[in-house]
Design a protein around this nucleic acid. Structure first.
Lengths: 178, 178
DNA sequence: CCGATATATATCGAACATGAATATATTGGA
DNA sequence: TCCAATATATTCATGTTCGATATATATCGG
């Protein structure tokens, strides 16, 4: 699944600028399971426009740079439908956090704690984003499933780490008391 | 965190060939949270060798291609330690499955079910890999944390999807009965 | 009220990563 | 017997990220 398809998928929900698409990959409905950089989104949108899968409308704005609003075209919808009609590839998950934890004998105990706290805060921030989406969404089955899945796995991570952190701090306290 | 650092980290645990590193990113301890392709691993190892962060030993094998066994060098250990002494960047998670589910109105109900089953089977396969690692590992705190975290989040995903799937099938059965 | 920072928008290019093809030799299964 | 899989390394086109660049307003702290 490439960025072109991501953009098509996004635009099938609402029309948007490249900037808005990127923002929603950071904060919105997509935040916990998709990412793409400006450097891939803008060229993808340009290409899609050239190929006639999306339409562009340039809007002048006072006080802000002009913007290009993209909307999906019928050919784009067809291409999207085709792209979705495959079994999903396996999820890709890369965690620098788990990498550091696996090699934790190379770092200080304080750093270990700090890394766990950072991870917890990242997980909670994603959970917060999902919560906000919940409030704004009109509760359709599709977004409910996606948000529910995100909540389930993120919450499991939070609970696991809170427990581990408590254990570590208890051990530290005991050592300090001796 | 780039592939060079990943390789250094792996080699700090055991010496290995590029092929073995890739395999372990697929099946082993790292399987549920790291990936890298041959096209990035081999060049990274070459570069690390040139820079003196790892050593290479070429071994002839009967019946198999020769192999190059890489081992971490003191300079490599220092570089690794430095690379680990930062707060971890946020996890990167990309899920084609959730993308398809979010746009599920473009696909058939059968495809929806098939996609969920595929996802469940992928999650269970990762859980199986972790289980095997558990059996083989000598139970140190670091790998326990990493495997425990993986189990927690993967299991949460499985439970959530099993429930959703059951709900869907129940609804279908009801419709069929009418 | 001034300066720094944030927001909103788009582009570019170097560096990095993926995925698939290529090469080769053995073993195991149909 | 022949095909597939395993074990190993390389290459390269294509795709992606990350940071820099550009620009104009709004906002916030001092």
């Amino acid at each position: 699944m490439n960025v072109r398809t991501l953009c098509l998928g996004y635009l099938s929900l609402r029309e948007a600028t490249g900037y808005e698409i990127k923002k929603d990959f950071e904060d919105g409905l997509f935040c916990h399971f998709m990412e793409a950089s400006y450097g891939s989104i803008y060229p993808a949108l340009n290409q899609l426009a050239v190929e006639g899968l999306v339409t562009v409308r340039e809007e002048e704005q006072s006080g802000k740079p002009d913007k290009k609003v993209y909307a999906i075209a019928p050919m784009g919808l067809a291409a999207l439908t085709k792209a979705l009609a495959v079994l999903p590839a396996q999820d890709k998950y890369k965690s620098e956090f788990l990498f550091i934890m696996l090699l934790q004998h190379h770092i200080t105990p304080e750093h270990r704690i700090a890394a766990i706290e950072k991870q917890l805060s990242d997980l909670r921030s994603d959970l917060g984003n999902i919560d906000e989406c919940r409030l704004q969404s009109k509760g359709n089955a599709a977004s409910d499933l996606v948000m529910g899945y995100g909540e389930a796995v993120l919450t499991a991570g939070v609970i696991y780490l809170e427990q581990k952190l408590a254990d570590m701090l208890a051990v530290n306290a005991k050592k300090a008391a001796e």
